[in-house]
């Protein structure tokens, strides 16, 4: 349909522009991370000095560790809570106000983060006044905040996958004698495992990336990686940060590529198996055409 030469060149041009916008900043960041000069905008020759100074910077190292710990912990909690929430929202009979509940579950996704963060901060402060816990802001409070946010995303992913699944699978399991708990663990959970895995990865990236909620919930001595980067950049561009960002791009890129490769491989295997089965069936049905599978006893 779009074979008109001029139109196709126009479209290609726009596409190229889009990619340029996306990747030129990242590329320049990677290139300048190997800049020997301390001035970010002046090229002073190739060097890896910023990488070695990065690994000697205790502040950055501890921020990376804290961010990783929080990301893992919130992703785990979000997967458990979000899966249960998604299941309930997808499978339980509709009741009065069930739409409201479904909407409320996803509120953290659309609510301005400033408000989520602020309200949580107020909650934690008043809890501290009345119960004495949490005694200080830090790992625990950030973890709670991130879990809330990530859980909403997981529940959406899991719920939409559940709505896709033929519900007669669960009916069949029940008909064959499985009780609801058994059905959940033996049938439902395996079928949504991919959605849960992607919810987990999504949670990790969300948590690693979060700055606003974290800013409200962190205390002295608990600075996450985005906070460190942000505060450093505010004092002027810094080649160390370029190096850190390059490493981040490398790590994230590797994860995405590996995950994609695994999924594509699985799909290819599946397609091959289906094709093979179809060929075998054709041969099979030609052999036994017209012959009933069970002869009359």
């Amino acid at each position: 349909m779009y074979n008109d030469g001029r139109l196709s060149w126009f479209l290609k041009g726009v596409l190229a522009l889009g990619y340029l916008f996306l990747y030129v900043p990242i590329l320049s960041l990677i290139v300048y991370s190997f800049n020997a000069s301390k001035l970010v905008t002046v090229w002073g020759g190739f060097s890896t000095r910023w990488y070695s100074s990065l690994f000697q910077n205790d502040q950055i190292i501890s921020a990376v560790l804290l961010s990783a710990k929080i990301a893992l912990a919130s992703a785990c909690a979000a997967v458990v809570l979000g899966t249960v929430a998604g299941f309930v929202l997808a499978r339980f009979k509709r009741f009065r106000g069930s739409t409201l509940f479904a909407g409320m579950m996803t509120a953290p996704m659309v609510m301005p983060e400033v408000i989520t963060g602020l309200s949580m901060l107020l909650l934690f402060i008043s809890m501290q006044q009345f119960f004495g816990v949490p005694s200080e802001r830090g790992f625990f409070t950030i973890w709670v905040g991130h879990t809330t946010l990530c859980m909403a995303y997981v529940s959406v992913v899991v719920r939409s996958r559940l709505l896709e699944i033929d519900q007669s699978l669960e009916d069949a399991a029940m008909d064959l004698g499985a009780r609801p708990m058994k059905i959940f663990f033996k049938i439902t959970l395996p079928l949504v495992s991919q959605a849960i895995a992607s919810g987990f990865l999504l949670s990790i990236t969300l948590s690693l990336d979060d700055l606003v909620t974290t800013a409200f919930l962190s205390g002295p001595g608990s600075t996450t990686l985005p906070q460190v980067i942000f505060s450093k950049v505010r004092l002027g561009l810094n080649p160390e940060i370029n190096a850190l960002a390059t490493i981040t791009v490398l790590v994230v890129g590797t994860i995405v590529i590996v995950a994609n490769y695994l999924m594509m491989n699985a799909q290819r295997k599946r397609d091959k198996a289906i094709a093979a089965a179809m060929r075998a069936n054709d041969a099979d049905s030609q052999n036994s055409a017209g012959k009933p599978a069970v002869s009359l006893a």
Partner: peptide
């Protein structure tokens, strides 16, 4: 349903996609 001595064959067959033929029958 899990206490009834009846079984049902579903219109969509409802075979468990993550189990082999054997495991489906044994379920």
């Amino acid at each position: 349903p899990y206490d009834r001595p009846m079984n049902m064959m579903f219109q969509s067959y409802a075979l468990f996609p993550h189990m082999s033929v054997e495991e489906n029958i044994a379920f």
